[in-house]
């Protein structure tokens, strides 16, 4: 780990000023991924600006049923929030499915969105990785990629996004509030926060230097019926092989509204738009749901070691909608 300067910001303007013009500066929230990657030598900041004390640590429920979750809210705090638990069950389940209770004590909502892929090559500086070291190549495509993405990938990178929370936020159509260094607020739909790798996998989000995620806005839920199911290699404390967040409203026996997002399959939470369109207005059986899920995989680029995720995802979506109906 490279030696670094540490500063604690007491207000957002100070945070922006501290990092301005310092290309190797990073913000520190909970640190559960940042410190991890610094120890591995994957991240080598020269300046760490602690923003965990900034006043973005509240969950505010609005009269219209929407919610603003502060970017510095920690997982434990979010899990305790009664309004979220009762009205956004998929979000709570996703949150509680992620990491361990200890990590949730520390980890922040903003940091969760910005956590890096757990691709093993990204995390090992002794290997090629275009995301970590632009132009060095991708070791995962010809190597071990079982846990990596099957869609939204490129020839340069097949990393998957590891978050659970973000998958639920995608199903709830969250909007990310970003504070620019000049103090202006910018709203970024969750679906647009993470960039697909293309030829530049090292550019992971649409954020610009000095941008700070101050909160996540949840519009009123499309339906009260929602859940999150995570398929993993053990029953707790493991990243998703595939996960699904689904919000479903049934009207007169037919799908009135449905929002489905997958985790573990793509470089960002993967919303199944085509599947949703195909299901609305129908009374689908399991096979119909599977077929509709495959519609969303038309552009999938599975690799030999992870092609099983396509069928698994289809089965999982079918199982979850069966449970919700």
């Amino acid at each position: 780990m490279r030696a670094f300067r540490y500063a604690r910001a007491t207000d957002p303007g100070e945070a922006a000023a501290l990092v301005a013009g310092v290309p190797d500066a990073v913000y520190l929230g909970g640190g559960t991924n940042l410190v991890d990657l610094m120890k591995l030598g994957v991240l080598r900041p020269g300046l760490v600006v602690d923003v965990s004390g900034l006043p973005y640590d509240t969950v505010a429920h609005r009269p219209d049923g929407g919610v603003l979750i502060g970017g510095a809210v920690r997982g434990r705090r979010l899990g305790l929030d009664e309004g979220i638990r009762s009205r956004f069950p998929a979000l709570t389940r996703a949150l509680l499915s992620g990491a361990s209770a200890q990590i949730r004590t520390q980890a922040t909502v903003a940091g969760n969105l910005l956590q890096r892929t757990r691709c093993p090559y990204f995390q090992d500086t002794g290997t090629p990785c275009n995301r970590r070291s632009p132009g060095s190549g991708c070791a995962a495509i010809p190597g071990v990629h079982r846990d990596l993405a099957v869609i939204g990938t490129s020839d340069a990178c097949v990393a998957s996004h590891p978050s659970d929370l973000a998958v639920a936020l995608a199903a709830y159509d969250a909007v990310v509030e970003v504070r620019r260094p000049d103090g202006e607020q910018r709203l970024v739909p969750i679906h647009e926060l993470h960039r697909l790798p293309g030829d530049t996998p090292w550019i992971e989000t649409v954020l610009e230097p000095g941008d700070l995620i101050t909160g996540v806005h949840l519009p009123p839920p499309a339906a009260p019926s929602a859940t999150y199911r995570k398929v993993r290699d053990r029953w707790s404390y493991a990243f998703a092989v595939v996960s699904v967040a689904a919000v479903l409203r049934v009207e007169a026996g037919r799908v009135g509204d449905v929002r489905i997002a997958l985790g573990g399959v793509a470089p960002r939470p993967w919303r199944l738009w085509a599947t949703e369109r195909a299901l609305v207005g129908t009374d689908p059986g399991d096979d119909d749901v599977r077929a509709a899920t495959r519609l969303a995989f038309a552009d999938a680029r599975p690799l030999p070691g992870n092609a099983f995720k396509l069928d698994l995802a289809a089965d999982l979506v079918a199982a979850v909608l069966r449970e919700l109906r």
Binding site: Y121, T127, G143, R234, S236, Y237
Partner: peptide
């Protein structure tokens, strides 16, 4: 190709947790 033990940590080398 690399001769590397790829999943060389406890997040990737899974051992049974209490929940298992």
């Amino acid at each position: 190709r690399l001769g590397m033990f790829v999943n060389h940590d406890l997040a990737q080398y899974h051992v049974a947790t209490n929940a298992d």
